[in-house]
Write a protein that binds this DNA or RNA. Structure first.
Lengths: 227, 227
DNA sequence: CTCTGAATCTCGTGT
DNA sequence: ACACGAGGTTCAGAG
């Protein structure tokens, strides 16, 4: 990884056009060639960047009186990032090697897995038909049948907001056209449900349910203990 | 901005839990206190981070035999980021000052402006009634009248996806309650429309249209040349 | 390969 | 403060 601290101006032209006036910033060039320009504050996201694959060419500015250097970064999509370095304050390179990568736990996929394994935690007598049950407009998280064998479509979210209710409503609209499934009931299951989402869901006849991730893990381990 | 290159392990516990095995990485501490951990490749996004405001406390690990150092970053939300530095390879600090910020051009707002100025680029004989026409549930991008003076509600997107169709559907539902407007037709205009979004739109009787940003700019400049 | 949906989304704007 | 929508979204996973 090469780290350059420099007073610079930047111009990006690609999916949009963007410009950075002259200031001191960090230029980060990673081993795979991707380039990122960071300011000293604000977000973790860089001000500008160019992902790999790309080509970086370095040249002097023939029009300039001082010794400024121009970096031109081009990618196969025709996007360009032009960095004019007016003054270089630091330029260091460090070898780092490949990163073993991030291990995550506790995202929506895990919640969905736990619920698929324990549908009765949602509703007594509930049985799983399929995870990611396909419809013409995308897959429903869980399709189940309740104790009366009626279909229940379940949308799982970490945080339940209005767009999740919209999503489930669309699925229900399409699922209810299928005579083998009709009538299909909707359930909105999340670790947290925003008040507005709850209002909209209830207005549409969709049941809401808040579940606890750690409790569910407990349920699962309890079941494992039985064997 | 402080830049530390170190062999380290990282544990994040907050909205999810995540762990990074030992490897050499860049630790970036910005002037506002935010911390980011970068690998030497992949995305511009850091592997782990903690936004400002937060507190960084540095301490030795009393249990360790070597001289490892532990950084503990805490934010008011109770999230923690624990970085164990096994070996520090570089540690530098640079003053950068405030960044003047990014100037952008070519986003959805510009597309909407161009279409508002040239409604006939969407449909022959189309006249603009109002941009950001208000309804009880939010403003419609463009409200127009066609050659037969019937109302047309237009949703403008850079990339047309299902959400946009939902949005327009909601607006149409409310606009069609207004006897002065009824019947209101819907049009979904974007630089690119995803197939599933097109299916849903057509299912709802909404017309789709793909427009080109650069062409529109050309139309505009053509009109300007007339004067 | 495309397409869909999640994200520690982030970031702005408006109320 | 919260809700809503856009993003050079990025990113991973399934068909």
């Amino acid at each position: 990884m090469r780290l350059v601290v420099a007073r610079c101006t930047v111009d990006y032209d690609g999916r949009l056009t963007a410009h950075l006036p002259e200031a001191v910033r960090l230029l980060m060039v990673k081993a795979d060639g991707c380039v990122a320009i960071h300011a000293d504050g604000g977000a973790y996201k860089p001000l500008n960047w160019m992902n790999s694959p790309n080509t970086l060419t370095v040249g002097d500015d023939p029009k300039a009186e001082d010794d400024r250097v121009i970096w031109t970064v081009r990618n196969p999509g025709g996007e360009t990032l032009i960095i004019t370095l007016h003054e270089v304050l630091s330029d260091e390179t460090h070898e780092m090697g490949l990163d073993p990568g991030l291990q995550k736990d506790g995202v929506e996929a895990h919640l969905q897995e736990l619920l698929a394994a324990n549908p009765t935690a949602i509703l007594d007598g509930l049985r799983l038909v399929r995870r990611e049950y396909p419809t013409d407009i995308g897959p429903v998280d869980l399709l189940c049948r309740d104790a009366q064998s009626e279909a229940v479509a379940i949308e799982v979210k970490r945080r339940g907001e209005i767009d999740g209710v919209e999503q489930l409503t669309r699925y229900l609209e399409f699922l209810n056209r299928d005579p083998l499934l009709r009538p299909v009931r909707g359930m909105f299951v999340a670790q947290e449900i925003r008040p507005q989402a709850r209002v909209l869901a209830e207005d549409r006849g969709i049941d809401c349910m808040v579940v606890d991730y750690d409790n569910l893990r407990g349920v699962e381990s309890d079941e494992l203990k039985l064997f």
